[in-house]
């Protein structure tokens, strides 16, 4: 793996001066990952290709809405890709999802212990490595393949309650680790 570049700064440069070089760097790194994410979530490759391009175009257009104190580049780009996918499925709730991507008018209490700039993605990845494999697997499956908890339960042959508990305890552990590391208080 290449050392993580400062992609947060790239987005800031796009917002400040429409920096095409910064955009190209973001595109080269993230577009193929977004495409992989969408394929794993069940999009046909051609749709994934198109949505990956749209995701990065949206980054260009909405760079001014990116708030480094709120999310890492990776988390933000993930959220854009998720919204575009829901949009492409023409789900009735797509307007609802679009909202948690809009700038916060009334600023909620900041979960700043969790969202803290450029190192966030690395911190979350490190925390995920401390989960037991069952917990990590259940959380990953909740993200990929468009799988509901019931489908995960069927796929693994594990009771639904167990799947939910694995996700729940995995989430609680992640939050506890991240908050301890950042000295944040819940």
């Amino acid at each position: 793996m290449t050392a993580p570049r400062d992609f947060n700064a790239c987005i800031a440069r796009i917002a400040a001066q429409q920096d095409r070089e910064a955009f190209a760097a973001l595109f080269d790194y993230y577009a193929p990952r977004v495409k992989a994410l969408l394929v794993r979530s069940g999009s046909p490759p051609s749709a994934a290709e198109e949505l990956a391009q749209e995701t990065l175009l949206t980054v260009w257009r909405k760079a001014h809405l990116f708030d480094q104190g709120r999310a890492s580049a990776a988390a933000w780009i993930f959220t854009i890709a998720r919204n575009l996918r829901i949009d492409s499925l023409r789900r009735a709730d797509r307007a609802v999802y679009a909202e948690d991507f809009a700038p916060e008018a009334e600023d909620p209490p900041q979960p700043d212990a969790i969202l803290n700039g450029a190192q966030e993605a690395e911190r979350v990845r490190a925390a995920m490595r401390t989960l037991n494999p069952d917990q990590a697997q259940a959380i990953e499956m909740a993200f990929f393949h468009e799988q509901t908890h019931t489908q995960i339960s069927d796929a693994l042959g594990v009771p639904l309650g167990t799947i939910k508990a694995r996700i729940r305890f995995g989430m609680m552990k992640l939050r506890a680790i991240i908050e301890r590391e950042t000295g944040g208080v819940a």
Binding site: P32, R33, P45, A48, I114, A121, R175
Partner: peptide, 27 residues
Amino acid sequence: PETRAWTALGHAIGGALLEDLEPLALD
């Protein structure tokens, strides 16, 4: 809004998983 700390964690996990995916070359 305080519950958004959990969905923000979810987005952060999504971001981390995105970083770790094997890239799939575009056309």
